[in-house]
Design a protein around this nucleic acid. Structure first.
Lengths: 267, 267
DNA sequence: CAGCTCTTTTGAACACGTTCAAAGAACGAA
DNA sequence: TTCGTTCTTTGAACGTGTTCAAAAGAGCTG
């Protein structure tokens, strides 16, 4: 949280290491990256097996066959071990959803598939994710889904929802302004579903699945109706609100403000 | 989080002590309640002065002139010290907002006043609340705003928003179903504002205030328009979604489900 | 090989939230 | 008073996430 600008021992060793979009990162030493991966994989496995809180850093280190200090050499804190998981799942989700949407052109259908895909990808981590969520809710944490720093994961997710839209029969009917907004809004829809999911204690998160089945046609309807005359002024107001207050907050267009500048806080 | 069913030393000493709706709790010993209050007040003061994380239980105990163990005798954990704060602020907000709405009959105006009142009441706790928020996001925590256990605070808040509505010129124009839903929805509106506020780093949370100024007329407009023919089917769908999926989640009408029963998890 | 620099690894030590057996206080009954 | 019971208080001790000075490698130049 604090001490973000701590004097890193090595020159930013692993955590921020480029995982080039191409796929393979340059191996540099190879050994280093190997240790980092070993620690991360071990941590993920233990998180899944025992839950986040019950997995101690000592246990991770022991299981991975390294020292505690070494884990901290590669990961700034226990929280940072989650970031890897987050990125991983976002990628898996994007791939899975894209594959499952293949051939479906109905917008509501595509949206529903992509959300259900997320639920399936995340299913095995439900217990663990609930605890992770608490961490993500910290505004000071770089894990926050709204944090502007890092998180290419959000970009990946938004790109998926752009595909949900552009691959649908609804896309050509919308005006460009709304079409520009929608991917981010659909991502917000996912965030709401995630919130619902985190609190959902029904077996197999059945209730969240029901919620998805019901809310996607509704969303599709709202978007579809927004084209009609009667709704224009309302839509105009809504888009204004979103563009000015929501998107800047989630790291879109850093907002032309001069007045709300730089509010650097904390020492 | 775990060990919720720990063998309490005393018979549920302070944390869950009846604060009878009447007002004054029965003093029993008097001394006990006094110690409890002392610890709570000290904690609140230190939280406000140094922030939640930087205030240690040892510091609270020392400052209050008791032992660490004693603090744990009255409060199950550090988190539980916050509950008192939460309840307190909710009450203060309800009183302040009600007073400030006096004489105003315009719905958007009343809504705006009540939200701005919250921002004012919470202002001095902004830093502290951000950290508190992380805790509240834990579904397993009783501090979660959605938790069904305890939290008369939510009831108080919803009652305030019911007053926002019924005291306005809009109230008589709405059908009863919608009027029944609205207090909870307006409370959700507050939750969104709180979310925005927690992440807001502008000086004096100016951006959140702007957000409130813009979003309240919009909300009023949406509600107002919902009466017209063209919007009926949409409104019907929306209310259905809300009644079935949102309200039950926030502790309203425990949901007639048999199928999603009881999902007791964790040991 | 020696010497140097940079990266990687170690594990003891620190501060924290929390627990618990034991001690003390309060108070009524005998 | 003296005992017995219950409520209250204590502080050492445990397990945790995290830090840090120091050691060990790794790769280089001479």
């Amino acid at each position: 949280m604090n001490s973000a600008a701590a004097p890193a021992p090595g020159p930013e060793p692993g955590a921020a290491a480029e995982e080039l979009p191409g796929g393979r990162a340059r191996p540099k030493t190879g050994k280093s990256e190997q240790t980092r991966t070993l620690i991360l994989d071990t941590a993920m496995r233990l998180f899944q097996e025992r839950g986040y809180d019950k997995t101690t850093m000592r246990a991770i280190a022991k299981e991975a066959g390294v020292s505690v200090g070494n884990a901290y050499y590669y990961f700034e804190s226990k929280e940072f071990l989650i970031q890897g998981f987050y990125d991983l799942m976002t990628h898996a989700h994007a791939l899975d959803a894209t594959a499952r949407m293949e051939g479906v052109r109905d917008f509501a259908g595509r949206l529903q598939i992509s959300l259900e895909s997320w639920l399936d990808c995340a299913a095995e981590y439900h217990e663990f994710a609930a605890q992770f969520f608490r961490t993500a809710a910290d505004p000071d944490s770089s894990l926050s889904p709204f944090s502007n720093e890092s998180h290419p994961a959000r970009t990946t997710a938004v790109a998926l929802f752009r595909d949900v839209l552009t691959g649908s029969d609804l896309a050509p009917k919308l005006d460009t302004e709304l079409a520009e907004l929608l991917p981010d809004l659909l991502w917000l829809h996912l965030m709401v579903v995630v919130l619902y999911w985190v609190f959902d204690r029904t077996p197999d998160t059945a209730r969240t699945r029901e919620f998805v089945r019901r809310s996607t046609p509704f969303a599709a309807r709202v978007i579809s109706l927004s084209r009609y005359r009667a709704f224009r002024p309302l839509v105009r107001d809504a888009t204004g609100l979103i563009q000015e207050f929501i998107l800047p907050t989630i790291g879109k267009s850093p907002l032309p403000s001069a007045e709300y500048g730089a509010g650097r806080r904390r020492s």
